[in-house]
């Protein structure tokens, strides 16, 4: 009974998606395995590292701390949906590229979605606010310096 799969309807990156999952399946695993969206990464499964960050109804959320069944009817955005439909990079993606905001790239989708969520809600977020928000996620390669630089540059570009 409990391992029974149940239907869940989501809107992922603008597309309606219907999956059949066990109640215990996390949203992160559902996105990766049932939606084929492996850009959302799992780094800790305890809600600390933030590699699994996605936007749910516009808010950055840890997808390892939520079950897919709980997301029924939600609008979900993942890294795969950040670029434009024609493949143009989002200013945050372009800025991470330009400013060396990534090294191994494992944490990068989480940081991009976190920053995208924050800047969409608060386009005028100042450096302190952005630093504080970016402290939500862990990166082991960059020392964060170029992540901050990338986000600040993208914020400026998004405002202009």
């Amino acid at each position: 009974m409990s391992s029974q799969e149940r239907p869940v309807t989501l809107e992922v990156n603008g597309d309606p998606v219907r999956v059949f999952v066990e109640a215990r399946k996390t949203l992160a695993d559902t996105l990766r395995e049932d939606c084929g969206l492996t850009g959302t990464h799992l780094g800790c499964e305890q809600g600390v590292c933030g590699a699994c960050t996605v936007l749910i109804d516009g808010d950055p959320v840890r997808s390892c701390l939520m079950f897919a069944v709980q997301a029924e009817g939600s609008e979900i955005r993942t890294i795969e949906g950040l670029e434009s439909a024609d493949g143009t990079l989002h200013p945050l993606q372009q800025s991470f590229w330009d400013h060396h905001g990534l090294q191994c790239g494992f944490c990068t989708p989480g940081f991009l979605m976190l920053a995208a969520g924050v800047l969409e809600k608060d386009p005028n977020a100042d450096e302190e606010t952005l630093r504080e928000a970016l402290s939500s996620n862990l990166c082991r390669c960059t020392g964060y310096q170029n992540i901050l630089k990338s986000v600040l540059a993208a914020a400026e570009k998004l405002r202009s």
Binding site: R32, L37, T38, G39, T40, H41, L42, T78, I79, E80, L82, E83, L89, Q93, F96, W97, D98, H100, L102, G105, F106, T108, P109, L112
Partner: peptide, 19 residues
């Protein structure tokens, strides 16, 4: 010069073992 490694990684198209 910007890194040639980056485009797939920033687009969620990286390919790690779990992927």
């Amino acid at each position: 010069v910007p890194r040639t490694e980056d485009p797939p990684l920033i687009r969620g198209r990286g390919s790690f073992v779990a992927d």
